[in-house]
Design a protein around this nucleic acid. Structure first.
Lengths: 248, 248
DNA sequence: CTTTTCTGACTTGTATGCAAGATTTGTCGC
DNA sequence: GCGACAAATCTTGCATACAAGTCAGAAAAG
């Protein structure tokens, strides 16, 4: 909708490219990020790539394994729980601290919900993933606090990685309805209700996770060979119905 | 009390040294941080210093002025308002989401309040500044969410910088009492009350700021010459009572 | 004396080179 | 065929060299 944050530092394209890749679920957790490859991709030296990686590490998005390489984080179950808890705290606090919804704010949210509907209708999974995460960021933007927007953006990125790891199946419609309910409460001016709905919504999503599932170390290879994803019962033949995975 | 965060990355001493310097108000906003000086101070090359600076920039603690140098941030009035708003949202949300106070948690908080009292009695300003900020971090630690702890730590650092810029005078006792009230509410098990008190406490501190004051570009020189700090009425002779400034 | 210009000593920005460790792969012995 | 060993080839870690920009102060012009 609007481009990169206005007063925010725009360090270089590398950071945002990676984050954007994660936000749209094009980059999976555990993906290896080679300094050399990124350097030639962006036509810069390793120095700048490393600086970008340092920043992303600070944001909890990548990790370095010493002398082995940089990897997109694979949040543990404990981290996943913390991320959702943090999001509940921040988003509920944010909504609870709001007291009015401006005209343009209402329009922004409606436009967003319409986009969600369109993406669902079109079955555009990548776009949908991105939109589902963006919804919460839009709300933070409405509250006008750039600091919290930035924090939520990083938490959203981690949320998407979590869902890619632990979410076996998900109904996009359910989340969309949750978003609609939150917007409705905001339009009523009942921000405490909106906050409660937000907590409920995040609980719902978190409950849908299977946190007991161990991250599959062979996921990449599996996908490359077009093998079915790891299932709880290894002997079970693959389900014929294609799974719909989204960031939320 | 307990040392560096356990599972957290301990990148190197540079980051923490600077943050610790800010947390104890030994480093003032606007302080120049020369890559070369830091490099020789820590006996490393500029490379590692730069990496540390990049991380600190990501955390909103330092800024780079291109080809001029690195500086500890001097938050603007708008940023100051955002920082306090963010802290209210997070801390209130945190307390509101808690439902019980463990024995050891109670002990930790009591020990902290005792330390605050001791620092006040001893008039140890630096220690007091550090403690005042740490109080809120302790609470986040009690809630057990490492992500929010980290976020609050950075916000606390910025808070201290803000208070150094905009806080002309402050009574440490007032904040200490605020903390005591919050702990009391927690002991009663009334976490909603604690959350409300926390918001009230932060409001109180924010109200005590003079955000209309422009940051004084001559502050460093002034301090070097032992001149009185910039006052609202320039002709007024310096007050004889020494001002007590703390991070909160 | 004031103003302008220029030079030189700083700063960070970026690339590159080399060292050290981890992983893989090829090879040998059995 | 199979396991152990070794070397080749990757990876990041870190220091250094040089490019480029900024600023202060000297020197020259008015």
């Amino acid at each position: 909708m609007q481009d990169l944050s206005p007063q925010q530092n725009a360090p270089n394209g590398i950071d945002e490219a990676i984050v954007s890749g994660i936000l749209s679920a094009r980059i999976r957790p555990g993906t290896r990020l080679s300094e050399n490859q990124l350097a030639s991709l962006f036509s810069v030296s390793r120095t700048r790539v490393r600086e970008a990686m340092m920043r992303l590490e600070q944001r909890g998005i990548v990790k370095v394994s010493p002398r082995r390489g940089w990897f997109v984080v694979e949040p543990s179950a404990e981290e996943a729980i913390m991320v959702y808890a943090a999001r509940r705290v921040i988003e509920a606090g944010l909504l609870g601290s709001m007291d009015r919804l401006t005209e343009s704010g209402r329009d922004t949210l409606h436009a967003h919900l319409t986009e969600e509907k369109l993406a669902i209708a079109a079955g555009d999974r990548q776009r949908l993933t991105c939109l589902m995460g963006d919804f919460h960021i839009r709300i933070a933007e409405l509250a006008g606090n750039a600091i919290l927007v930035e924090i939520l953006r990083d938490l959203t990125a981690r949320t998407i990685l979590i869902s890619l790891l632990y979410q076996s199946d998900f109904h996009a419609m359910q989340s969309h309805l949750g978003h609609c309910r939150i917007v409705a409460a905001m339009e009523e001016g009942d921000f405490l209700k909106a906050a409660a709905l937000s907590v409920e919504h995040l609980d719902e999503v978190e409950t849908g996770l299977d946190l007991s599932r161990r991250p599959d170390p062979l996921a990449d290879l599996r996908r490359s060979l077009s093998l079915p994803p790891q299932s709880a019962a290894p002997r079970t033949p693959p389900t014929t119905k294609p799974q719909t995975r989204t960031g939320e």
